[in-house]
């Protein structure tokens, strides 16, 4: 990974402010893949991430602030769906040259942390169908193993928003995509929405599925010996559901 500058620090803030008037923070590691979208590193996003990364943050705040990030991810993810031009008449009688989205969508969450992203998805897409996939690490082989899935029957006709907040090695996400592909979903109709990734995870995933759009809020510095993202935010599912 010699081409990657880890944990870059830069000034963040609105363009009209001079650099000297902006605070500096560690921003997302840049990883070059055509199909990778990293959310704009605004001071707001950095502040939200700072809250959910902080080990002192209580569960209520963790849920609220991670939901705000997830909503931003969903909003950005939906931008990658196909559209057609569409002109409507406004209440004041003038025409508005707009567009409409084409095609049906569904969500698929990788249990259990991915399910924490369902609320954010529903806040943007009210009655969206949501499938679930349970993948766990096999104790004997240390490899991810599919335990359960329940997906919409017509999933092959839909765009799929795959949800998992943490992308460490990429093992489970890769397996989830394989499950979706086996149900007839083409790679380029899957959008992977992710809060925090490691450069290794991104590289593994994006090399394997070059046409699959990945939207993440932040690419962190790396992985530790036990394959945890660092500096990370701990176990997302634990912090969201039980701790």
């Amino acid at each position: 990974m010699s081409d990657v500058k880890l944990a870059p620090t830069q000034c963040v803030g609105p363009i009209y402010r001079a650099e000297s008037q902006k605070p500096t923070a560690t921003v997302s590691t840049e990883v070059q893949f055509d199909a990778l979208t990293i959310l704009p590193q605004t001071p707001q996003l950095i502040a939200l991430l700072s809250i959910i990364r902080n080990k002192e943050t209580q569960r209520g705040d963790f849920i609220f602030y991670s939901n705000r990030i997830i909503r931003l991810l969903v909003e950005e993810g939906l931008n990658h769906l196909p559209t057609v031009e569409h002109t409507v008449t406004t209440p004041v009688g003038r025409p508005y040259d707009g567009l409409v989205f084409q095609g049906k969508i569904c969500g698929v969450s990788i249990m259990r942390a991915g399910e924490a992203m369902e609320q954010g998805l529903r806040e943007c897409c009210r009655s969206v169908r949501i499938g679930k996939i349970l993948i766990q690490r096999d104790e004997e082989t240390a490899q991810p193993k599919l335990f359960y899935d329940k997906l919409p029957e017509d999933i092959a006709d839909r765009w799929v928003l795959l949800l998992d907040p943490m992308l460490a090695t990429g093992g489970s996400a890769i397996m989830a995509v394989e499950v979706l592909k086996s149900r007839g979903v083409p790679e380029d109709r899957i959008l992977f929405l992710n809060v925090l990734a490691s450069p290794e995870g991104i590289r593994n995933f994006a090399t394997r599925f070059p046409k699959l759009r990945v939207v993440t809020a932040f690419v962190d510095q790396g992985l530790d010996a036990s394959n945890y993202i660092i500096p990370g935010l701990g176990d997302f599912g634990d912090r969201y559901y039980t701790r």
């Binding site: 620090t9 500096t24 923070a25 502040a47 700072s50 705000r68 660092i230 500096p231 990370g232």
Partner: peptide
């Protein structure tokens, strides 16, 4: 909600060292 998110980028932030559950530090903002 998106408009307000955008607007908040214009509020002032200060630098803050954030201790993560891995006991590492993230140079963030609040």
């Amino acid at each position: 909600a998106l408009l307000v998110e955008e607007a908040l980028n214009n509020a002032p932030f200060v630098e803050a060292d954030i201790p993560t559950p891995q006991n590492l530090t993230y140079a963030g903002l609040c």
